[in-house]
Design a protein around this nucleic acid. Structure first.
Length: 286
DNA sequence: CTAGGATCCTGTCAGC
DNA sequence: TGCTGACAGGATCCTA
């Protein structure tokens, strides 16, 4: 669920609450959700690699966290009058009482508690040596993010995967890193490209437009504190408002296209729900 | 090697 | 009300 902008929002927000605090105890409520041996240590840094968050400790260990579809990180102050910062999968009940049915890991800090909730158990926390983080198989395979990838390289990559749908291609984190289902749809709409176009059919100009659109939609989301769904809340408990304010097509099927007024429709591409304006995003060239 | 589909898991919602 | 199937802001594994 959380895509790059949400994880970046979490990284920034959570830093305020857990930096310099010591992990005193880790309780694992679901074995599948925690890989490696629990560790203690003081939080010295929060880093992000694509959609993965890494918490570095002063004892040489790091916690790599991937929220996947339904993960959520919630910081709760010592008593419930303190700040609470929740981010990830949007869900009111995730935040209401803690721990709850979806709580998988509880990290007790020198002050406050960090809860890892995850309805579908796809996400995980993994203990790694700090020196090995960048060698982790997932992190190691990540492609550059849209801001650091040049349009020429992006175009080359599209040619290499010329027979797959452009949407599937930009969702592949080993090709370009950071986009998920929301921002893929938004970037394709912004650049007027139909998600089912073969990647190899994009012109150099279109590839450049798409890359720039990816940067823009994610910049905008980070600036507004991530996106919102019924259950999404930011790290400080306030809601991100990307979907409400900025999303043009995602989850807007049946509504009028903000650009041309035609009706936005929902289709299925690369196994994912996909939102397009069939008028703005013509399926040409195939 | 690429491309597409199934799969991990829990919960919710639409349609009988 | 109760059942059923589809679907979900992700990534990996298996197959052809």
């Amino acid at each position: 669920m959380p895509e790059l902008p949400e994880v970046e929002t979490i990284r920034r927000g959570l830093s305020k609450f857990i930096l310099k605090k010591k992990i005193q105890k880790i309780d694992i409520l679901c074995d599948k959700s925690f890989l490696g041996q629990p560790t203690t240590g003081t939080v010295v840094a929060l880093r992000r690699f694509g959609k993965a968050l890494v918490i570095d400790l002063d004892n040489g260990n790091s916690l790599m966290i991937h929220l996947r579809m339904t993960g959520q990180l919630i910081y709760d102050g010592k008593n419930h009058t303190d700040e609470r910062y929740a981010a990830g999968h949007p869900s009111e009940n995730f935040v209401s009482t803690l721990p709850n049915k979806q709580t998988r890991v509880i990290i007790t800090l020198s002050s406050g508690t960090l809860y890892f909730n995850d309805q579908r158990k796809f996400g995980f926390i993994k203990v790694l040596k700090t020196t090995e983080v960048e060698n982790d198989s997932f992190i190691q395979k990540l492609a550059p993010e849209p801001w650091t990838m040049g349009p020429e390289l992006f175009y080359e990559k599209l040619q290499k995967h010329k027979n797959s749908c452009i949407k599937a291609t930009i969702l592949d984190q080993t090709i370009i890193c950071g986009l998920g289902n929301i921002y893929a749809d938004e970037a394709l709409f912004a650049s007027r490209i139909h998600p089912e176009r073969k990647s190899g059919s994009l012109t150099k100009a279109e590839a450049k437009l798409l890359l720039e659109a990816a940067r823009e939609v994610m910049d905008r989301s980070i600036d507004s504190g991530g996106s919102t769904m019924a259950t999404y809340v930011k790290a400080d408990g306030t809601r991100g408002d990307y979907l409400e304010k900025f999303a043009q097509v995602f989850r807007r099927e049946g509504q009028a296209c903000p650009r041309c007024g035609n009706q936005i429709i929902k289709i299925r591409v690369a196994g994912r729900g996909t939102h397009i304006c069939p008028h703005c995003q013509e399926k040409v060239y195939d």
